[in-house]
């Protein structure tokens, strides 16, 4: 019994310490973000990495999610004769929930793990120390561009996912399941407001922050050689995904 509580105590302490260190890293990043000189080149490079290079996987995810949503909601709505509501169901689900969340999860897997690996390798091969000895603040040089890029690019990717999802839903609903195209589009326009999209984009910006911060934190604090780099990549993906889902609930309940 005592052992159990001891272990619980150690785990709690570790968790609190980690959260504290992350908060400090975030605070430092915000501070250095507004401290000149600004290195736009690094930010654009990260935007390309997180945004442009994730486009393909996000398009695929969005398209298939929209398509399957149309099929499932058609099946459910048909039972009480509301097939005409497939359009808004798909659009609302994509904009408010699945667009941001699935984009976040996919980018965590693709870019988050890569960021953690890159920074982790830089840590264990002393490249981060080298930056420091050249009088360059590693947080400003490495972490800030990634966080800025994450927060800026996730909403863009989400818009793409939303759009592709709606198009996918339209394809399944209208072309495969024979819903009247006028009804499909008309109902969608009637029921979906700008607010619904905005709420999703706001969430995705927060997810962008989570992905970058978690990946940078784990990468930056890597110890233990090649094995450590692998652990950092795994940890950043697992923590990133779980936190996205947790914050998804929190943000949804706030903005409900």
């Amino acid at each position: 019994m005592r052992e159990f509580f001891e272990r619980l105590g150690i785990l709690t302490e570790k968790a609190i310490k980690t959260m504290g260190s992350m908060a400090i890293m975030l605070a430092q990043s915000v501070y250095y973000m507004f401290l000149p000189p600004f290195k736009f080149r690094n930010i654009f490079k990260q935007m390309e990495f997180i945004g442009v290079k994730s486009l393909f996987v996000v398009v695929l995810t969005g398209a298939f999610t929209g398509m399957v949503l149309a099929m499932q909601s058609y099946n459910a709505l048909k039972r009480f004769g509301a097939e005409s509501l497939v359009g808004p169901t798909v659009a609302l689900s994509m904009a408010r929930e699945l667009g941001p969340v699935l984009t976040g999860l996919m980018v965590t897997g693709r870019a988050g793990s890569a960021m953690a690996t890159e920074l982790g390798t830089m840590r264990v091969t002393e490249q981060i120390d080298a930056l420091y000895t050249m009088a360059i603040n590693p947080v400003k040089y490495l972490v800030v561009p990634r966080i800025v890029a994450g927060v800026c690019m996730l909403p863009f990717l989400t818009i793409v996912a939303d759009f592709v999802g709606v198009v996918g839903g339209y394809f399944v609903g209208v072309v495969l399941l024979d819903i009247n195209p006028g009804v499909y589009i008309g109902r969608t326009v009637d029921y979906v407001n700008a607010d619904d999209i905005f709420v999703g984009l706001l969430k995705s910006a927060v997810f962008g922050l989570i992905i970058s911060l978690i990946a940078c934190y784990h990468g930056y604090n890597t110890t233990g050689g090649a094995e450590g780099v692998g652990k950092s990549a795994t940890n950043s993906v697992v923590t990133g995904c779980v936190l996205i889902l947790v914050f998804d609930y929190i943000l949804t309940s706030i903005m409900f």
């Binding site: 890159e118 390798t121 830089m122 091969t125 002393e126 490249q127 120390d129 080298a130 420091y132 000895t133 050249m134 009088a135 360059i136």
Partner: peptide, 30 residues
């Protein structure tokens, strides 16, 4: 620190940059 230089054990070259960019990096930054 700008008056210091350091050679690391594994050289710690930035592997995303060319040799020229590595050597010129402190000049580019400062």
């Amino acid at each position: 620190l700008k008056r210091f230089g350091m050679l690391f054990q594994g050289a710690a070259l930035f592997d995303s940059m060319t040799v020229g960019e590595n050597v010129g990096f402190p000049l580019m930054e400062h």
